Every structure is written in C-alpha cells, then in structure tokens.
Simulated assay, not measured.
Amino acid sequence: MKAITIAQAGGVENLILTTVEKPILKENEVLVKTKAISINPVDYKIRSVEPGLNMMYGEQRPVILGWDISGTVSQIGNKVTKFKVGDTVFGMVNFPGNGAAYAEYVASPEDHLAKMPKNISFEDAAAATLAALTALQVLETRIKKDDRILIHAGSGGVGHFSIQIAKAMGAYVITTSSAKNKDLVMGFGADEHIDYIKQKFEEVVSDLDFVFDMFNGDILLKSIDVVKSGGTIMSLPAPDFSDEITTLAKERNVNITNLLVQSSAKDMHTISKMLEEGTLTSHVSETFSFEDLNKAHQHLESGRTVGKVIVKL
C-alpha cells in the first residue's frame, strides 16, 4: 500500500511517499481503506522536532504520522462486533500514540471509530475527528446552559467546532477572529464577535464563566482578568504555565487547566449524531491530494488556516 513515512524530524521534505505492507490486524481492530485524512497542528509539531517523534513513537523509525481518518471497512478482527466490511467509518486513531494514518489502509481499534452519517462526505467526516473531539471533551463537562464563554480563535479547527458545540449546549458564545472571518464564526452560532486585530478582548468582555484558550502566554494571562471568581480557563497548549500566570490565577480564584484529547468511540458517536442532525458541520477550507500531503503541512504551518485542512486519497 502507499504510505507517507518519516525517518527523522525536520521539514516537509522528510515526508516520503513510499510503499509498505498493509497492517496486520489485531483481533479487536478494523482495517479501514482510507478516503480522507485530516491534518492538525500536532502533525507538523511532531514532524518537526525529534522530541515530538520520540514522545509518540519512541525510537521506532521510519514511522507513519497521522491520526484522523475516514474511509470504508475492508477487514475486521475476529473479536470486532460493531462494524462489518463495507461500513463507512471515521475517527481519531490511537491518540496519543501511533495512529499511522498517512496510508491507504489504517488499522484502528474498533473503540476509536464511529459509523459515518449518510449525509456527509468523507472529507467532512475526516475533519470532524481530533479537532471536534477536542472541542467536545473540553466543553461537555465544563459548561452549562446560559454560561457566558469566550472561545479564542473561533475560525480555527478546534474553534469552529467549539462554537457549534457550545451553542448546542445552550451557552452564550463570544469569539475572536479577524474581521474577514466574522461572518463565518457568526454563522456557526457565535453571539458576539471580537476583531482581535482592532480590539483588545480584555477591554470588551468581563465576568465570564469559561474561556477556551488556544495560545497560552500573553493571551492566557489577559484571559484571567475576564473570568469571574470560580470560573475556568482551558488552555490547550502544553501546561507549562508561567509563575505570573499561576500567581494571578490563584489571586483571582480562576481555575486554569489543560487537556490532551483521547481517542473515544463514545465521543465519536456523539459527533456523528450531531453531524447527522446538522447541529455540527465541518468547515473544510483546503483540500490536497495524498501526493501533496507535504503541502498540506506547509499550509497549516503558515498559521493562516480557516477551519480544517484535508488530504484526499
């Protein structure tokens, strides 16, 4: 089968299109013939530095990167009960760990997949995996109806899913983006928009129940001032909070926490149902061929991505 492998960390030139053997299934696994792959910031971050590769793969080289897939079941292990050959499925495979998604065939535990709704494409399904799971796992136990929440970077991958999920939960959603993406984020259901280029969010909002931060650093520090006492900030980047941040959060009685998304069939079923009902939609802004997967990395790494970047097989 075709696959894209990497033998050492570095630039996109280290992503090599090659031929490898199909995965050998374990008894609880499903073999998926891949139709679409979603690319996330974690992909290029892990690709670019050896500590990232080592964290996920140890000393194994070369390796196949990637976690987000949609496709068709071509084979099942002898203990698989939830899927049959021919089913269309999607999910985030083995995260954190070795998903090996940049390939024509991907072996996934059945507990990491859900059946695709019939009303969406393979591209939209692949988009609604790591980013949508992150949004769901961050929000589902931390916000409630009528909470006032701020979602930074609402036009991004995690951001645009977060707006929709928070609205489905009944929250009042404020989000930041550039002015050119205002209509997009408002279309996802945001109640208020802040143009982060012309406005300082810390001067516009206050007394919030929850903030979803994608940046850490100065934005996280300023976010503490807009959260009410007893409120929460979820910060996605690694939890290396500065002394200034932790001190201010303690002084203001604001809980700052961190989450690493986990593969989950249960959560994928929730996302599948929302996609089917139309309460959740994927915004795919760029699509690349498998042979141009390195260009997908470059596009995402530019920091100009709106919504999701997809690779088609």
Rank of each mutant, 00 (worst) to 15 (best):
G10E: 06
A168L: 03
K198A: 10
T281C: 11
A131N: 11
S285F: 00
Q164I: 04
V106E: 01
F212W: 00
A9C: 14
E50C: 13
G11A: 05
V311R: 02
L293H: 03
K180V: 12
L221G: 05
M214N: 14
I24V: 15
K167Q: 14
T175Y: 01
A36W: 01
G230T: 05
M214K: 08
A126H: 02
E202H: 02
L31Y: 04
I64E: 11
K2R: 14
V306T: 13
A135K: 08
V173T: 09
T81D: 12
G52W: 03
A9I: 14
V85N: 07
D147P: 05
Y102H: 14
A101P: 08
I69N: 01
H112M: 04
I69C: 01
K167N: 14
E104M: 07
T232I: 12
T134H: 06
K200A: 13
I151S: 04
S74E: 15
I64D: 12
A132H: 11
I151H: 02
A107C: 12
A171S: 12
I163A: 03
V42F: 01
T246V: 11
L133S: 12
I69Y: 01
N54F: 14
E110N: 06
Y196K: 09
S178I: 03
N40D: 15
Q137A: 11
F188V: 12
D218K: 13
K22P: 13
M169G: 08
F290V: 11
P41S: 13
A3I: 07
L15Q: 07
N258Y: 02
I64Q: 10
L139W: 03
L300G: 06
T257Y: 00
H297S: 09
A9D: 15
K26M: 07
I197K: 15
A249Y: 00
I16M: 08
I194G: 09
E276I: 04
T18W: 04
A249I: 00
E291V: 10
D240N: 13
D243Y: 03
A171R: 04
M268L: 14
G58Q: 12
R47S: 12
A179R: 02
D87A: 07
Y102G: 06
V85Y: 00
P117N: 10
F122Y: 14
I16G: 08
D207N: 14
P62E: 13
A103P: 04
K22C: 10
S70P: 07
H283S: 10
K180F: 05
T279P: 07
V32N: 03
T129Y: 00
K2Y: 05
D225T: 04
Q60P: 04
S155W: 02
V261Q: 01
L65Y: 10
G231A: 07
R142E: 13
S285V: 03
F241S: 09
R304N: 15
E301D: 13
E277N: 13
D43T: 01
N255R: 04
I245S: 03
H193W: 04
E29I: 01
D267H: 12
T129S: 10
K33C: 05
D68L: 06
N258W: 02
A168T: 11
L236K: 02
L25N: 10
E50T: 15
